[in-house]
């Protein structure tokens, strides 16, 4: 029957188009990844790994802010990580350099990435880091220790009710092996 075979051919044609559509949408899901990164970069939402640009260097000596430092290790990354000073008092606009110390306790090289966070959260956008070990991944050789500086300026536009800021870093291991480590519940990495 020619009508039926015509319908069958037409069905095949639409089928192919829809399959192409579905495959394209699978690709689109992955396309959202660079798209998202670009949007975050352009709008400056997710720039924690880039140095801040400081334009106003006026020091506001009328205010003193207590900046506290905190250090954390994620999961079972075998590192020791601590700030060399627990807190400093700074004026907004004043360039300050402090340091953290990190050491690898394992007889093998491990790469880690530090991610900063701030308390209170609002302080994050006024905490200008010009230099930070968190901008790059850190690879520590077996048993290596390293002192790493953080140079920062507090934006004078910091809200008046903020008198204390906590800067907290967490070091994550770079390897993509956390799932397995978690499942074994063990300390092998």
């Amino acid at each position: 029957m020619s009508v039926d075979s015509e319908i069958a051919a037409e069905n095949q044609r639409v089928l192919k188009r829809l399959i192409v559509g579905a495959v394209a949408m699978f690709g689109f899901g992955f396309l959202l990844v660079p798209f998202y990164e670009k949007i975050c970069e352009v709008t400056g939402i997710n720039n924690i790994l880039q140095p801040s640009k400081v334009t106003n260097t006026q020091v506001d000596t009328s205010r003193t802010i207590l900046v506290q430092f905190d250090a954390n290790i994620h999961h079972d990354l075998p590192w020791t990580f601590r700030p060399l000073q627990t807190a400093v008092r700074v004026h907004p606009g004043e360039l300050t350099t402090i340091a953290y110390e990190v050491s690898n306790n394992r007889p093998e090289a491990i790469t880690g990435q530090a991610v900063p966070s701030y308390g209170p959260q609002v302080a994050g956008q006024h905490f200008m880091k010009m230099d930070c070990f968190c901008f790059t991944q850190q690879t520590l050789a077996a048993g290596e220790s390293r002192t790493m500086p953080v140079a920062f300026v507090l934006d004078p536009a910091l809200p008046a009710d903020v008198t204390t800021i906590t800067l907290s870093y967490t070091f994550f291991e770079i390897a993509g092996r956390r799932a397995e480590a978690g499942r074994a519940g063990g300390h092998e990495s």
């Binding site: 829809l18 559509g21 579905a22 495959v23 949408m25 699978f26 690709g27 689109f28 899901g29 992955f30």
Partner: peptide
């Protein structure tokens, strides 16, 4: 369904 199920498949693949 054709538009979004593949996106979910992509997300769980990631």
């Amino acid at each position: 369904l054709i538009a979004v199920m593949p996106v979910l498949a992509g997300a769980v693949t990631m």
